[in-house]
Amino acid sequence: MRISFMNLVKTAAVVLLSYTVVAGLLMPVPRLEILNETIRNLYFHVPMWFSQIVIFSVALYHSLRYLMAQGNSKISLKEKQKIDLAAYSAVTVGMLFGVLGLLTGMMWANFTWGAPWSSDVKLNCTAIGMLMYLAYFVLRASFTDEEKQSRFAAIYNVFCYVLFVVLIFVIPRMKEFSVHPGNGGNPAFAKYDLDSYMRMVFYPAVIGWICLSIWIWDILRKYREVLLFRSLQD
């Protein structure tokens, strides 16, 4: 078997996520008030957001590539469409992981903070970030010309990513109060109670989920390529 980057990613996703599910549910965790056993959600909720930002970065990379290639007549139309589909699929997968992150977070919050949705800076900022990326799909849908659709989607994606980073990493740290660790003066996980057992699961879980998101992205991208080029042949 040829060892390619994607094969490594797939193997890592299978191995690390099987480990995460088994070890995440069976390994010892610190006994803490309020959190109790729900602390195991750390292996599922937090990696969703890591994967989302990684996959949005993939989308940014492909959008930038599209904008570079767009004026270049040496690159074929088919190649450009492939780059655009890569960016589009990455945004779709990013949204999927965002929804999963919100759902796991709401479940966790329901048991620890008493309600699925509290008016926390970080919650509100992520919700707004998701709305920004939803607008990406609306923008795409409103163009009929394919070349213009790809170009303007790429432009908006670059704009959106920069503001998304400001929204997620800068604004929550400016506010005085937040219930999330590492924000609003709360200590981050490193200082918190992430003991050595939890680290042994948490770091593999993060890498595993990121690999899974890349895997899903790869399949979606190829699926959309097949759909597009088959419809062109007919």
Binding site: I128, G129, A135, V138, L139, S142, K148, F152, Y156, L163
Partner: peptide
């Protein structure tokens, strides 16, 4: 404007930001 669609698109794009 380049999409040639209605003004609602402007609100959808700007309001989240």
């Amino acid at each position: 404007a380049r999409s040639g669609k209605s003004t609602t698109l402007v609100s959808i794009l700007t309001l989240p930001i």
